[in-house]
Every structure is written in structure tokens, then in C-alpha cells.
Amino acid sequence: MAEQTRTASSRRSSTRRKPKKNQIPFGLLTVAAIVLIGLWLNTRSTTIAFFWMTGNIFGYILQKGRVCFTASMRDPYLTGGTTLTRAIIIALAVTTIGFTAIKYGYSVAGLPIPGMGFVQPVSIATVLGGIIFGTGMVIAGGCASGTLMRVGEGFIMNTIALVFFVVGSLWGAHDFGWWSEKFISNGPRIFLPDIFGWFGAVALQLLVLFALYVFAERYEIKRGASH
């Protein structure tokens, strides 16, 4: 009798569900619009057209891969799963090799190393900033990339987070000179190739990432969250 009741209930619920709309036409129209806008932007600026196309491609990859730095740090504590954490570690390892190759090529050629101007001093502000930003990411439910991705999906809460993300960035940029003078500029600038050499710096970073990967994998097994 109970089985018949459950079967009848499931049938009623299935009949109440609205049939899903075919999304293929919308997808084709979206792709066509992206291409047409890219072609139009190309007549104005090749650089802007390139940014437009790569932005859409990266957005698609983020949405399908569900890539989010917040989730990679949050999921191990909430669910014990470290799949995304390990994916981020692998991404960091790949980018370490790629960017080091670019910078090393410039160094060997005697050219200014790109990105050296962004090597910021390490200070207490680095630690406090990381804690504040990490706390904000968890509360907002996404990092910068994750927030943008979910805004594209239509999440209202992430849209609100994006607004305050912009407000906070503008406020930080406005007061950055004061923070830099009082707290940041006095700290040491650490560029690993200057300390360990190019090969040593890459080897050290890859070794640390490998250790983190193994730890994350064993942590997931210990928590019983492995799939």
C-alpha cells in the first residue's frame, strides 16, 4: 500500500513539472551574437576584440569547470572534498612553469623581466589582507572569478557582492598610497630566483605544491569524502 502511494505521488509530481524548454536555439543565438560583436570590435580595435573573445572563452571554461578559489579553500572544511583544491594546485604548477619560462627568456636576453614591478614587499599587511579578503570571499560565496561567473548565471547575491567588490576596490585604490607608505613599503621584496636561482626557485615551488597536493589527497581520504 505504501509503495502504491509513493508511486502515485511520484506520478502526480512528474505530471506537474513543466517540460524543459529547448536551450539549443538560445545557445546558437548567443554564439552568433558573440562572434558578430567580436567582428565589430575587431574593426575598432584588435586588442579589444581579442579580450572579448578570450573573456567569453574563459567564462565558459569557468562555468563548466565550476572553478572557484573560494570553494577550493572552503570545501575541505565543509565537505572534506579536495577535488577542486587539487585542480587549483595543478593549475598553479602549470602556470609556475609557463610564467617562469617567459621571465627566464627575458632575463637571458638581457631584457627587463615582465611583472617585476608587481613584486610587492611582504609585511603584516599581506597577512591581514589575505585574512580579510578570504573571509569576504567565503561570506560572498565566491572569489573574483567565481563571482563574475555566477553573475553571468543570474545569481542576485553575487551581483550584490560584485557591486561591493567594485566599491571596495575603488576605496582601496584611493587609500593605497597611505597604506603603502605606512605599512607596506618597509617590508622586504622577495623574488625567489634572486635567492635560489631560476631552477632552484621553480623546483622549490613545485615541491611545495606537490606536498600540498599529496596532503589534500590524503586529507580527503581521511575525511571519507573521496569519490
Rank of each mutant, 00 (worst) to 15 (best):
K103C: 01
T79S: 11
Y219K: 05
T7C: 05
H174Q: 13
G65N: 10
L206G: 00
R66W: 14
R218C: 07
L41T: 03
A211F: 00
K222P: 00
E3C: 01
K103H: 01
L62R: 03
F26M: 13
L192V: 00
F199N: 05
G59T: 13
G105I: 02
F51C: 14
A201P: 00
V163P: 04
A93S: 10
M116N: 02
R74Q: 05
L204W: 00
G65W: 13
I195N: 03
P193M: 05
F118V: 01
F191C: 01
I61T: 14
L29R: 10
F196I: 00
S72W: 11
I139V: 15
G146S: 10
A32R: 11
G224I: 12
G142N: 06
P188C: 04
T54L: 13
I113T: 03
I156T: 14
C143W: 06
T79M: 12
A33K: 14
I139K: 03
S72I: 06
Q205D: 01
F210Q: 07
V108M: 11
P121Y: 05
T85W: 00
Q4H: 08
P76K: 03
L29V: 14
I97H: 05
I48R: 15
T15I: 14
A144V: 12
R223K: 10
F183Y: 13
Q4G: 02
G105K: 02
L148G: 11
R11E: 11
I190C: 00
W179M: 11
L206F: 00
G136H: 08
R223E: 06
T82N: 08
F50Q: 09
W40G: 12
S45C: 04
S45I: 04
G55L: 10
S10E: 15
G136Q: 07
G136T: 09
L206I: 00
T126L: 04
L170P: 04
H227L: 15
T15F: 07
F210I: 09
N158E: 10
G110W: 09
I88Q: 05
R150I: 06
P76D: 04
I195F: 11
K222L: 03
N42D: 09
P121L: 11
M157F: 12
L28K: 05
L206Y: 01
R12T: 13
G27K: 02
L212E: 02
L41R: 03
A33Y: 10
S180W: 08
E217H: 14
G129E: 00
V94Y: 02
Y60L: 15
I37F: 06
